[in-house]
Amino acid sequence: MNATRSLNCKNVTKKYGDKIVLNQVNFTLEEGKIYGLIGRNGAGKTTLLSILAAHAPLTEGEVLLDEETVWENTNALQYICFSRELNLSAASPLWNMRVKEYLRMAAIYFPFWDQMYADKLIKQFELNTKEKFGKLSKGMLSMVTIIVALASKAPFTFLDEPVAGLDVVMRRVFYKLLLEEYTLSGRTFVISTHIIEEVSDVLEEVLIIDKGKLLLKENTVELLEKAVEVSGLSEVVDKAVNGLDIQCVETVGRRKHAVVLLKEDETIKEEYDVTVKPVGLQDLFVAMCGNEA
């Protein structure tokens, strides 16, 4: 692969009957970045990834790899890997399958598959591949999805909640493996998660979706530099944040907290006796998407 590719999500809408799950979603993913897709439960994260990887049809719009649609396009799809979160029940066809057989299928399915890398990861995770899926713990299921994603070597790789079942030590191991593979290969990764704080430093860009809409797609560092929490006496805070892009306000007695996104050249003036603090990605996300809680 020489030229850098891009994946284009154009006006994508997905409806299940009357229910709108994704609403006019537009963005472009460039090759060579780690993106984070964050949103609350039911925001549409998994649906969006399924559509980007052409695992599911869309209602309106299109997904293009460069100029080509990905839908039913084996040429485009060889560059995309969507490693789904495995949630198994006894009724699932995977229940009695051994991990080994599943990985063998992945090796056939993904044209850039790297078996040596897969073997190395299996060893590192101490995963017993002779085990049947029905016997695996949540953490081990996460490891299988991570192994498939990393070893697929697909230029665009999507991981859906990769760390959900992992303990804190294994999560750390995963972030390091991801960064290692990323720096060696320059592949594009999209990671959907709701464990936000610890992953925020890994993400070059973040996409926030809420109720099927894309709220923002921005460079993580630049976004966090604009986000501040202003607190103090209610009236003074009101004056200090007047006219700014206020994401969320909370009042306790005379005290008020406001989370604002500053535009370029905007600052909280020193003349106001308020406390101005930086806001982490998780708190910013809650301020933007937690309104009905």
């Binding site: 990323y182 720096t183 430093d201 070059e204 560092v221």
Partner: peptide
Amino acid sequence: TNELAKLYAINPATAAK
């Protein structure tokens, strides 16, 4: 930058900055 990225589990672009 890649060593820093791995050490602190941060994006290499951030370390480079």
